[in-house]
Design a protein around this nucleic acid. Structure first.
Lengths: 230, 230
DNA sequence: TATTGATTGCGAACGGTGTTCGCAATCAAG
DNA sequence: CTTGATTGCGAACACCGTTCGCAATCAATA
């Protein structure tokens, strides 16, 4: 009886010794998928495309994945492994801030990540390690456990919100080509109509150089202070 | 010569008098799509499904839409029309807070919205009206126009982040059925392994009743204060 | 009133997608 | 050498977004 057991999500089932040696791995699959997403956007990450890039057929990947959704989860968790969880900072606040900063740079490295993170709490090993680290930073804080978890969740949500805001700024085309143009067509027409005077005024003042680093730090620090982290 | 002009994104091209009267409308399409998304999740909103629910074929909708992406934009802007933009609140801060509160309840009414809003600044008429209203709330504030726009964008991003956090809480199944279960499987196993002691501790303390309203207000007010809004 | 032609409705088809099925190939254990 | 759990993967199914082409409509014109 061929078992066809459900694939253990994160560990491969410890090879029972029998059967041919695997020619692929979740790691390779994740790497290929992340590569595609970094280059051509998340929408380009299809099971078939990943398989093609790996030189095999789509069906093969289903020995390692339960679904396309799980592929995305795998991508998120894999990329979450890019955190450096070594100690950095004295106070809990500084440690969490450092983590958030790293998060921002990871999201810049993988622009598809920001939109994904708040939606799917991936719960892979790297994510769990990150969670454990963040909780350890808050060890001295007197606060019920669930609230600490919520604080961490809100922290990454804030970070991803900020980064998505950065990425949607004009100039960061990313992989959006013509879609934005249509929007701008209508926007300029609407502004020209005179129905939105304040909006017109706000848009008139050209895009000045911002200092997003300080803004980011400010927002995060304000939130942490509000949450009782000092 | 059949013109087949590009469809004006938000206004129908003012009917030139010639040709059969339209049997559908962008409004109907939006309503059908929103209904599907509210009931079965955003993933269920396909052009074909919307057409089927409207009792017609997929090709028909393409007289009113340029693409599936535009359908989603239309949904977002339509739902953004649910804001009540009447004056509420004295200070700029109170007005923006009131807007954010409305945003939260709209996102609760349409759970698919929160994940969409920060990604695609839809720029439809309702969105523009909302923007204009928010800017008018800040009229007395001395701040360059673009920064005001960024403040508003960050405000909705914060709101959507908070709501996504609320929605991913256990108990709000929404339309996720089995996917979360697999995650929990691995999570409980990982926690049981003893490798994540702090995480285990945090999860052990059962889910206490939260007071998300105050939390939300606190976060928004803190942000606005940090941005110079008093 | 008859004609015209821009506009709408939509069946049919194309290429891409996620996913399942079934079987041949593998290879440690017995 | 046999066994049988395991892997690789071609083929197929249902669905998706999108385009094409043409019949049907109907205000404006002749």
């Amino acid at each position: 009886m061929t078992a066809r057991d459900p694939i253990d999500i994160w560990r491969r089932p410890e090879r029972s010794g029998v059967g041919p040696k695997p020619q692929h791995s979740r790691g390779q699959i994740a790497a290929a998928a992340i590569d595609i997403a970094d280059r051509d956007g998340l929408a380009a990450v299809s099971v078939r495309r990943v398989a093609r890039d790996m030189g095999t057929g789509p069906a093969s990947l289903y020995r390692y994945l339960r679904s396309h959704d799980e592929l995305v989860e795998l991508m998120v968790d894999t990329v979450s492994g890019e955190y450096d969880l070594g100690p950095s900072g004295e106070t809990p606040r500084d440690q969490l801030l450092a983590l958030a900063r790293q998060g921002r740079s990871i999201m810049h490295r993988h622009p598809w990540l920001a939109a994904l993170l708040p939606t799917r709490p991936s719960m892979g090993p790297s994510t769990l390690r990150y969670l454990e680290r963040a909780l350890s930073a808050m060890e001295s804080i007197d606060m019920p456990g669930p609230s600490k978890l919520q604080t961490v969740a809100m922290l990454t949500a804030l970070t991803s919100a900020f980064v998505q805001n950065e990425l949607s700024q004009p100039g960061n085309s990313g992989s959006d080509n013509g879609a934005a143009n249509d929007r701008l067509e209508y926007l300029s027409e609407a502004v020209w109509s005179g129905n939105y005077p304040r909006l017109a005024g706000a848009l008139a003042g050209g895009h000045e150089p911002e200092t997003p680093d300080d803004m980011f730090t400010g927002i995060i620090v304000d939130y942490l202070a509000g949450a009782g982290l000092r």
